[in-house]
Computed example of a mutant assay.
Amino acid sequence: MGRFIYPSYGIMLIFARLFNLLFFICGMTWILKRSKNNFYTYFMIFAVPFMQKIASPSYDVFAFLTIAAFGTNFLYLSQFRRFSELSKKDYSYSIFTILLLFLTKRNYIFAMPALLGLPMIYGCLLNFFRRRSVQSKRIMLISSFLVIFFCLFIVHRFFNLKILLHVFFDNYFNVATMGGRGLTSFSVVQDNLPDLVNIFWIVCLCLLMLAEDSTTYELGTVLGGVIAYFLNWFGIFLGFYIGYPEHLPFDDLTGRYLHAFLVLLVPFMAWLGQKIKVKISEKSFSQIALSATISVLILYLLITVYRGFVLGVTPAWKN
């Protein structure tokens, strides 16, 4: 459309950004409308982390909508214990969200193991296991351990697990070697905002997730979400690790690769909040979500305009 109006790079870029922005708004509105619970939590998760990319001319918008659809649908499906409780619409939408994962960034496929945390899936597996004889159970357990051992052996042959885990630990858990990586790995708001803003947003989001009592999650769902999150973290790390044959700590893996999976941590935080009995009134819940998100968005807009038009700084990831 931009090229039709005037064939210049600037006009085409503006229309590309506007189209992607409109696509993001329509897609996210549809996703949030379909979600039955956790509206304000989803609003925080998908508004602030994606704010620099929602008007991006790249395919990032499609990628973020994909993981948003998959993640929210995963939490929706976690409320059902049997497949028979699902409607045809639920089946169609679930298959659709899974297929979308194969059409976007490769690392988003790491979200699929979360499906094993659905009660209807792990419940069937547990029931199947319980109905087996003692001898069959032993064979299944031994076979499972052998498969796990074989997979670890293959990984070790290619990457040397000792060195791999050592670099991973030095990157994110060793204070003496991780430098700023411990901070940037959990940096959700944009890099041109002060770190204090990121801390403020993270605290508000964690508070809301802890106080989320409208939905109850089974322990299997909690573990499924957490495992999928860390699989994504380690999987992306492994992708960068391959490009560093000297096996030294690196800075490539930042929070922008991880924040899309924050939605998978909602069950864990809600489960933890119910255990320690965190309570927030419904009015305070909405006020925290809206005020925190809107304030960060406005601050980002003001700083971007100031740096771009007053200071003349070219917008980039780090400024």
Rank of each mutant, 00 (worst) to 15 (best):
M1F: 13
R3L: 11
G10C: 04
L13E: 13
I14F: 13
N20C: 02
I25G: 07
W30K: 06
I31W: 02
K33G: 10
K36R: 11
K36P: 01
I45S: 01
F50P: 00
F50H: 01
M51K: 02
Q52Y: 03
K53A: 14
A55R: 01
P57L: 07
D60M: 06
D60N: 10
L65G: 11
A68W: 03
T72R: 00
T72Q: 06
N73V: 08
Q79L: 07
F80D: 07
S87K: 13
K89M: 09
K89Y: 05
S94C: 11
F96M: 11
I98T: 01
L101H: 02
L101T: 08
R106Q: 14
P113C: 13
A114G: 06
L116V: 13
P119T: 09
Y122P: 09
G123C: 09
F128N: 13
F128T: 06
F129M: 14
R130S: 04
R132K: 15
V134P: 00
V134H: 07
Q135D: 11
K137V: 04
K137C: 06
L141C: 14
I142H: 07
S144A: 15
F145P: 03
V147D: 05
F150L: 14
I154K: 14
V155S: 12
F159G: 01
L165R: 01
H166R: 12
V167C: 02
M178K: 13
G182W: 00
L183C: 05
S185D: 03
S187Q: 13
V188C: 00
L196M: 12
L196N: 08
V197C: 10
W201S: 03
C204F: 03
C206L: 14
S214A: 13
Y217N: 09
E218Y: 09
G220L: 08
G220C: 09
G220M: 04
T221N: 05
T221P: 09
L223T: 05
L223Y: 11
L223F: 12
I227S: 12
Y229E: 09
W233H: 14
F234Q: 07
L238M: 13
G239T: 05
Y241R: 00
Y241V: 06
E246V: 08
L248E: 12
L248H: 06
T254Q: 14
T254R: 14
Y257N: 04
L258I: 09
L258C: 14
F261N: 09
F261K: 04
F261R: 05
Q274A: 12
Q274W: 00
K279P: 01
K279S: 12
S281K: 08
F285R: 14
S286M: 13
Q287W: 10
I288F: 05
T293L: 07
T293S: 15
T293H: 09
I294Y: 03
V296N: 04
Y300L: 09
L301K: 05
T304H: 07
L311I: 08
L311T: 08
A316R: 06
